[in-house]
């Protein structure tokens, strides 16, 4: 039953949703820029390691192949459901495991050298940050999709009255 009050509140809600959408777009853009920057600086550090140590020191030949021994993943993507409202916001997050050789959690850095140079360590940190940012960006994008869907619904509701 459409009343003036519900129309007013629906309008206000729609305004807020639009503002939220703008905020989310800006945050998403910022997040994407951060991913770009972090990834670029990681790549530069990796290139520096190769330049200092020679081209053959860090190569794909050192990565384990199918025939190598099995090991567990140090980093997993898990979906986490927020307590507040489980329906609308399905978020994902990163779960990291400590290096534990006996249980199969190996340190990937040691494939390349026993004493990795500082620049290679820096590159690893940068790429780890990058994964976190990708997760953040995904969450923002999901939120944005939710907001867009509710805007569509609410517009239909308003148009009907």
């Amino acid at each position: 039953m459409p009343t003036a009050e519900s129309k007013e509140s629906a309008g206000q809600l729609l305004d807020e949703l639009y503002l939220d959408m703008f905020h989310l777009i800006e945050e998403h853009t910022k997040c994407r820029i951060n991913i770009e920057r972090t990834n670029a600086s990681g790549a530069i550090l990796l290139a520096r390691t190769k330049y200092q140590q020679g081209g053959s020191t860090i190569s794909t030949a050192q990565i384990p192949t199918e025939n190598s021994g099995e090991f567990n993943a140090l980093c997993r993507v898990v979906s986490r459901t927020r307590d507040v409202d489980p329906k609308t916001s399905m978020e994902i997050s990163i779960e990291r495991h400590m290096v534990d050789k006996e249980n199969g959690y190996v340190e990937p850095l040691h494939w390349f050298s026993v004493l990795p140079p500082m620049s290679l360590r820096g590159a690893v940190l940068k790429f780890k940050d990058c994964i976190e940012l990708v997760v953040e960006s995904t969450n923002l994008q999901r939120e944005l999709n939710t907001v867009l869907r509710s805007i569509g619904k609410l517009r239909q509701y308003v148009a009907r009255q």
Partner: peptide
């Protein structure tokens, strides 16, 4: 960021 009244939103839509 504005806080969205999710309960109202669900009720309306």
């Amino acid at each position: 960021r504005p806080t969205i009244d999710v309960v109202l939103l669900e009720k309306l839509t």
